[in-house]
């Protein structure tokens, strides 16, 4: 798309996009690191993830502030309007992803070496596809690729199935050895957090698709495995 006659307008939109990508980069590593911390029982790493969250919150505020100011001064229209709307909503989703990752870090601090390695691996395994979802949706944002955003949106069901299978796996550990129940409960919350992160990625994909095409993705048209009652 060509540049605005008022070049500062283009600069401001680019600054918002750059801040959003920075936020995205931080929360992506927060997801991976929080789960690596679980996997390796690395409390230092978990604490490090927790300390990164305030920066995400600050960036969200920064993006919001810029957008409010831009709307007041420039009254964006058409694609510009859709892109600031999408950026505002996406910033909120990324902030939530940061919170959920931080929460995984906090729960990691409540676990000790007695937790079976197999249980830890389960959560770590789920982190990979979830962070990949975020990575792909941020790529779609950076490249303005509506189809890539739609692909992410359509593949959330894989994350849900991963969660369901992890849930069943955790139940078997807890049934086998009641001493793992406390750790298992924490891990179920971690898995749920990862599943929620997948949902936030889906939302971001919807905003990006709208930003690029001006059309809405219809939630009930998304592929979904029948609810397993979890």
């Amino acid at each position: 798309m060509s540049e605005h006659i008022v070049s500062a307008f283009t600069d401001e939109l680019e600054k918002i996009a750059a801040d959003l990508m920075r936020m995205g980069g931080i929360v992506e590593t927060m997801i991976l690191d929080s789960c690596t911390a679980v996997d390796r029982n690395n409390h230092d790493m978990a604490r490090d993830v927790i300390t990164r969250d305030p920066e995400v919150d600050r960036l969200e505020e920064e993006v919001e502030r810029q957008i409010v100011s831009l709307i007041a001064r420039r009254q964006p229209m058409a694609h510009d309007l859709r892109s600031v709307f999408s950026a505002l909503k996406t910033a909120g989703e990324l902030e939530r992803i940061g919170d959920l990752s931080k929460n995984i870090g906090k729960r990691t601090l409540m676990l000790d070496e007695s937790v079976p390695v197999a249980m830890r691996h389960g959560v770590a395994r789920m982190a990979r596809p979830v962070s990949l979802q975020l990575h792909m949706v941020l790529d779609a944002y950076a490249t303005g690729n509506a189809e890539a955003a739609k692909t992410v949106w359509e593949s959330d069901d894989d994350i849900d199935q991963h969660y369901n299978s992890l849930f069943r796996e955790m139940l078997t550990y807890m049934i086998e050895d009641p001493r793992t129940i406390s750790a298992g409960a924490h891990m179920l919350f971690m898995a749920k957090n990862l599943e929620r992160i997948g949902d936030h990625c889906t939302n971001i994909a919807e905003f990006i698709y709208f930003q690029i095409t001006g059309e809405y993705l219809i939630p009930h048209e998304r592929p979904k495995t029948p609810n397993t009652g979890i």
């Binding site: 798309m1 060509s2 540049e3 006659i5 058409a78 694609h79």
Partner: peptide, 11 residues
């Protein structure tokens, strides 16, 4: 052309 005009990208 509409997009360019209303978003201030004309000319």
């Amino acid at each position: 052309r509409t997009e360019d005009y209303i978003t201030g990208r004309f000319g």
